[in-house]
Every structure is written in structure tokens, then in C-alpha cells.
Nucleic acid binder design. Structure first.
Length: 257
DNA sequence: AAGACACGCAACCGCAAACAA
DNA sequence: ATTGTTTGCGGTTGCGTGTCT
């Protein structure tokens, strides 16, 4: 479900005037996306506020960072979260608590925001269902899930064949992606719906038809980093069921899906 | 057909940690 | 050691869209 961009003004990068000096908020326009994408692709990031400035965006650095991390990054997966990934999320949430960025770091191509949103909508559904069941049964609501917030240190480290321990560090100062440059000049004016535009921009996605090598800026990709596969993080068989029934005894027979 | 409601997603806010001067 | 700035994170909100009544 994608919103239509409802920008207060048109992308409005860079023109003067008192009003236009005000920081923009709200949804990003395709033009803003393109400016940000191009800026980062060509020049990387020194500080986010400078990125905003150099790209001619009237956005906070914070906003630029968020947009890049959650939407423009070429390495993001666009497909919906799979069942396997969902299991992984549940498993990791169970051991890590709501440390979404840590969870996301173990799920290449997924963002903390995405995972958080996914979890929240799912857990809300569950809680509602459980609450209804409790009301119907006239019993007390179940206790919260075993909190893991304080147990972070006890979390089993990722063990990638015995050599790697813990999540692969992701460089704080990226520009670390392999991405196909979009035609920075063309199409800029004509407003394409933001999803379409951005999806095209994200065509670092290997499924895209043809990739012109001459248009590639090569940086490190997650593949280069030999990022640990998610597989070994999947919980022991039956553990999720056990957790489910622990969580919602009244509901223990009902399936997650 | 129209309104109400639920859902999902994007983005903002506030705080704390990390870093620089 | 202190202060200011930037970054990163988790929680929360706002809004478009789909579904239900």
C-alpha cells in the first residue's frame, strides 16, 4: 500500500525565498528521492546534514538518513517478508527484544523500520485476538513475552562456520553499495508515482533486465561482505510453537498464520 | 453507493550514545 | 573534563487504501 505523495509544495529543492527556506517535512517527492540518491551514489556521505545541503534538499540530515536507510538503499529487498523471514523475526525478537536495528542487521535487505512495522501490526493482531479470547473465556490476560531486553549479552552469537562471531559489522560511513546509476537528468521533471520511480532507482536489484557495467559505481555490497546467511539463525524446531503456547496458553492451538 | 473501520506503511519525535571541538 | 553536534534507535503518529457493513 503506497501513499500518493502529498507534498506541501513541489519538490522545491533549492529555490530561495523565506518560505522555501523552511525545512520540508512529510512524504518525499520523486525529485527529492532522485536528488538524494544521486548525491549519495556519486559522493557518498560525510555528514547527513551536508548531504541534505549538497543535494539541495530542504530536509534535515536526519530525514535524509531515514529516507536512504528505509527506502533508497539499493540493497533493500522489495519483496514482502517471507514466512521464513517471519520466523526469523519472531525468533530474534524473542531473544533480543525490540532491538529492531540489531534484528535488521541480521536480515540483509530488511530495515529496522520494516521489521518494526511488521512486528507491531502482527503483534497487535495477536494481542487483540488473545484479548478477545480472554474476554470470551473470562480469564486473565496472558503475561507479556519473556522480556529479553536485559539479556542481550546472553544472546547466542552468530556463528558463521566457526570463524565469524556476532553480526557482521556494517560500516558506519557507507557508500558501500553496488548500484546502477539512474539517469540523473532525464525524467526528473515528469512526476512518476513515487513508488515506481523509486523502485526503478533501486534497480541494484539483480533481477533487473540489463545492467550497463559502465553505469555501475562499484562499492562493497553485502555480498562482498559475505554477510552471514539468515539460515543458521532460525530457531530450533518447535521452539516457536512452545513460545506461542507459553505466550497465549488459551490460544495455543491456533496457528500464527 | 457511502460511510466506518482496520490495516500497513512512511515519516516524525524524543532520547541517548558517539564523536568532535 | 566539558560542551555542542551528529547519528542511530525505538516508539508513535498520520494518512492512504482496502474491506466490511
Amino acid at each position: 500500500m503506497v501513499r500518493k505523495p502529498s507534498h506541501g509544495d513541489d519538490a522545491g529543492a533549492g529555490n530561495g525565498g523565506a518560505e522555501s527556506n523552511k525545512e520540508r517535512k512529510g512524504l518525499w517527492s520523486p525529485e527529492e528521492d532522485e536528488r538524494l540518491f544521486t548525491q549519495i551514489t556519486y559522493h557518498g556521505v560525510s555528514t547527513w546534514s551536508s548531504v541534505a545541503q549538497l543535494a539541495g534538499l530542504r530536509r534535515s540530515g536526519k530525514s535524509c538518513r531515514l529516507r536512504w536507510m528505509n527506502y533508497l538503499r539499493p540493497d533493500l529487498k522489495k519483496e514482502p517478508i517471507s514466512k521464513r523471514e517471519e520466523e526469523l523475526i519472531v525468533s530474534l525478537q524473542r531473544s533480543l527484544g525490540n532491538r529492531w536495528s540489531t534484528i535488521a542487521a541480521r536480515m540483509p535487505g530488511r530495515t529496522d523500520n520494516e521489521i518494526k512495522n511488521y512486528w507491531n501490526s502482527r503483534i497487535r493482531k495477536r494481542l487483540n485476538a488473545a484479548a478477545k479470547a480472554e474476554v470470551a473465556a473470562g480469564t486473565e490476560p496472558p503475561p507479556p513475552p519473556p522480556a529479553a531486553e536485559k539479556k542481550v549479552e546472553e544472546v547466542e552469537p552468530i556463528n558463521n562456520g566457526g570463524t565469524e562471531v556476532g553480526p557482521m559489522p556494517i560500516p558506519a560511513r557507507f557508500p558501500v553499495f553496488e548500484c546502477q546509476l539512474v539517469d540523473a537528468g532525464g525524467g526528473g521533471g515528469e512526476s512518476t508515482p513515487s513508488t515506481t520511480t523509486s523502485t526503478q532507482q533501486n534497480s541494484g536489484d539483480d533481477s533487473e533486465a540489463s545492467v550497463d557495467e559502465s553505469n555501475m559505481i562499484h562499492c562493497l555490497s553485502f555480498d562482498d561482505l559475505d554477510y552471514p546467511a539468515a539460515d543458521f539463525l532460525v530457531d530450533l524446531p518447535g521452539a516457536m510453537d512452545a513460545w506461542e503456547s507459553e505466550l497465549y496458553p488459551a490460544n495455543s492451538t491456533s496457528s500464527l498464520y
